[in-house]
């Protein structure tokens, strides 16, 4: 019947599994090595501290300071998370603990549609809605001069973009908590809010952190929507109403152009390396917290 006998088939399947595993395990490592080799030209000529903390970005005269991009990326990401995290957490708690079940059934397709929209659509929406809102209303109202294309606009757009992802995970996490745990807390005389605050959120904490970490990683790497509204000005932003520049936008805007400038190619690769390193760092911190809170 078969070309191979049972033992041989086992060996073949087993080998493939090992190969797939190794591939997945080594992929990040290979990426890292690849980017390092491509950017080694830059790293050898400048000190790492100079590259990361220097503020001057003049490729034509050989000055590569990544600080404005790093700061821009971190600002945009963190403000986006500050907006997203409470909205998602409260929404997830509300739809899983307070509302009737059919609300969740209605919400799920809506969330999925939001999650499936291409990022360029979010970027357009940012240009058409958020940017004018900031330049015409929010800025004047706070007596701040801004052209709208700013860190804040990027944060707004990003936060809306990652809400569906984070929210979907959070809803699943809260739904996975057994009803009996809730009943146990209520039977002790806890109110619904006490049950949520002291028991459910605590139980879900590792998952909540993982969801936020996932959102953070997505936000940090998001390219298109951000570069459409962030302003793309290489300058250290002094407030959230200033325009900025992010690492992914730097790569996307410039790769393939101006490659005649010496080391420009290597500099962009170094930006990618930085992105990878920061993502790795976020991941490690996230894992630390997950392990820390996962003992219950």
């Amino acid at each position: 019947m078969y070309l191979l006998n049972r033992k041989q088939r086992h060996a073949v399947n087993y080998t493939w599994m090992i190969i797939s595993l190794l591939l997945v395990a080594f992929l990040p490592f290979l990426l890292f090595v690849g980017l390092y080799i491509k950017s080694v030209l830059l790293i050898h000529d400048y000190s790492l501290v100079d590259l990361i903390f220097s503020k001057t970005w003049k490729p034509a005269s050989g000055q590569f300071g990544f600080y404005p991009f790093i700061v821009g990326s971190i600002w945009v990401t963190l403000i986006a998370m500050l907006i997203t995290a409470p909205i998602c957490l409260l929404t997830a708690i509300y739809v899983t603990q307070y509302t009737k079940k059919y609300i969740l059934r209605i919400m799920h397709p809506a969330i999925d549609i939001l999650a499936g929209l291409p990022s360029v659509v979010y970027g357009l929406w940012g240009i058409l809605v958020i940017v004018p809102f900031i330049s015409r209303y929010l800025g004047p109202w706070l007596d701040i001069k801004t052209m709208g294309y700013s860190i804040l606009a990027a944060s707004f757009v990003l936060s809306i973009m990652i809400i569906p992802f984070v929210l979907n995970i959070l809803i699943e996490i809260f739904r996975a908590i057994p009803m009996e745990l809730k009943e146990a807390a209520l039977s002790l005389g806890a109110t619904q809010w006490q049950t949520i605050k002291h028991v459910l959120v605590k139980k879900a904490l590792p998952g909540i952190i993982a969801a936020f970490g996932f959102g953070l990683a997505r936000a940090f790497g998001e390219t298109m929507a951000v570069l459409m509204v962030v302003g793309n000005v290489v300058r250290l932003p002094k407030s959230v109403f200033d325009p900025g520049y992010t690492l992914p936008a730097l790569i996307a805007n410039n790769y393939g152009e101006m490659l005649s400038i010496p080391k420009y190619d290597a500099a962009l690769m170094f930006a990618a390396l930085l992105l990878l390193a920061v993502s790795l760092f976020f991941n490690l911190v996230m894992h630390f917290f997950i392990v820390r809170f996962n003992k219950y």
Binding site: P178, E180, L181, E183, A184, A185, H198, V199, K202
Partner: peptide, 9 residues
């Protein structure tokens, strides 16, 4: 209850 559900503490 049927199975124990200790609080996460």
């Amino acid at each position: 209850s049927q199975r124990p559900y200790p609080l996460p503490m």
